[in-house]
Write a protein that binds this DNA or RNA. Structure first.
Lengths: 93, 93
DNA sequence: CTATTTTTGACCTTTATTGTACAAGTTTTA
DNA sequence: TAAAACTTGTACAATAAAGGTCAAAAATAG
């Protein structure tokens, strides 16, 4: 989910992966994997990207977190109920 | 959340921690921590407990998973939105 | 066709988490 | 108040996950 968003952002701004990699001082292979949701992105990198493309950090963080949640439960049977329960718990507290 | 449920189950069934510990072949200190949500419980242990107290495994798994989710995001700002997004994503797929 | 970009796979190091154990302290119960 | 039950702190090995790298292959653009 985050990967697609990041890629979209990159393309809209006319960047190639190499340029993002340079900004974050990492390998382009890593960027590729992040865009394909094969590797997580650290929060500090996420912040840099938000700044770079002038997009609200919160917007990206929400997606980043949702991805984390989904990863936590990805091969479970009752994810939906669990998510619902988690949301309820949070809402009532 | 799971800890309280487990404790309730244990007390309803008139068990002391030592007995649960024996069933799972672990230290009672561990059971104490699990009941106080200080340590996670492995899924296999969870299954054994469900069987022991004849409660639907699913019921416990849902709580166990919800706890996992909540832990993943516990000190984040926009958890609620993230959870909502995760739930939406899951629902539409 | 060739140059650039992107992807893939294998690997590596560091950090975090899990599952345990033990000892000692505290609380509860009889 | 003594015994049983429970909690707390510390430690540790094993495992998993994070956060990368490098080289080579595949895809795409010009």
């Amino acid at each position: 989910m985050l990967g697609a968003k990041l890629k979209e952002l990159r393309e809209i701004n006319g960047y190639v992966q190499r340029q993002i990699a340079a900004e974050l001082e990492v390998d382009t292979a890593y960027i590729s994997k992040v865009e394909n949701d094969e590797k997580p992105l650290s929060k500090s990198h996420l912040k840099k990207i938000a700044k770079l493309f002038k997009v609200a950090e919160k917007e990206l963080v929400v997606i980043w977190l949702a991805d984390k949640i989904l990863n936590t439960i990805h091969d479970e049977e009752n994810k939906q109920q669990a998510l619902q329960l988690a949301l309820n718990t949070l809402t009532k507290s």
